[in-house]
Computed example of a mutant assay.
Amino acid sequence: MPAPRSNPQTQPPLTEQELLAAACCLAEADPSPGTVWEAWERYGVALLLGCRFDAVRIPAEQVHDVVGSDAAKTVAKVLTAWLDGPVIRDFRSRIGPYYVLIAPGAEWDGPAERLSTGTYLGVPRPGHATTLSRWVVLPPYPGALCDTQHVRTLLAANASLRTVR
């Protein structure tokens, strides 16, 4: 299995200012930022129309196989080290998928589904917990996105593990 890009350390907690900056960046990614803020206040999650980011949907089983655990802290440590960018988990079911945020123009030929322009994604407000979805890895700075090469490597490691088993 390929090694993660760096030591799997948890992401240092973001300050309130950093969380607000990340929230502002996400809200402004939507054509109607005011609606995003209203949804966050009311539901804790907002449906954002992808325009400043796309998302790669990865089934939870694949992530857990690569990480070797389904423990939230372990998954967060490994994904922080491996992807170095924002990841959201859907918690509407026990097997809810992970959404890795990538640049809209980034090349993607990987096996996982890409959600792009015209697709809505449930995005929780940074720094606020919700039962529907949760940040696994917060954006380390406003506008941060994952590199698709790192996502491909993660999925290739999963495919290798499945072949070995």
Rank of each mutant, 00 (worst) to 15 (best):
L26W: 15
G110V: 04
R165K: 12
L101S: 01
L19I: 03
P4D: 11
L138W: 02
A159M: 14
L26Q: 00
T148D: 00
G50D: 12
S160W: 15
V164M: 07
W82K: 01
A39F: 15
P86D: 00
W108F: 00
P126G: 02
V123P: 09
A144Y: 06
V66W: 15
A103D: 14
K73N: 01
V136E: 03
R52H: 15
L19E: 03
H64D: 10
Y120F: 14
W108V: 02
D90W: 14
A76I: 02
D30E: 05
R94L: 10
V164R: 03
T163A: 03
Q11S: 07
V123Q: 03
G143K: 07
L79M: 00
I88P: 04
S32N: 11
D54R: 06
G127C: 03
R162W: 15
R114L: 01
V164L: 10
Q62G: 00
V67A: 02
A159L: 14
W40Y: 13
A21Y: 06
T35S: 04
L26M: 06
G122I: 13
P140T: 05
T130Q: 00
R165I: 13
D84V: 02
S6I: 15
G118Y: 13
A72W: 05
L145P: 09
R42I: 12
T35V: 14
V67D: 07
P59V: 09
L121H: 10
Q11F: 12
L132V: 13
T10E: 03
C146I: 06
L155A: 04
Y141I: 07
G85Y: 01
R89H: 06
L47N: 13
W135F: 07
E18L: 04
A156R: 15
I58N: 06
L161D: 09
Y120L: 10
T117P: 05
Q17H: 12
D147L: 05
T117Q: 05
D84N: 06
A60Q: 07
H150D: 12
T10K: 14
L19G: 03
F53G: 01
A144D: 05
T74A: 01
P97I: 05
Y43N: 04
P31D: 11
P124G: 04
C24D: 09
T10G: 03
G122E: 08
D30V: 07
C51L: 11
L47T: 14
R89K: 11
T153C: 07
S93R: 07
P104L: 01
T148I: 09
H150P: 10
V67F: 14
I95H: 06
E38L: 12
D30P: 11
P12R: 05
T119F: 10
A46H: 14
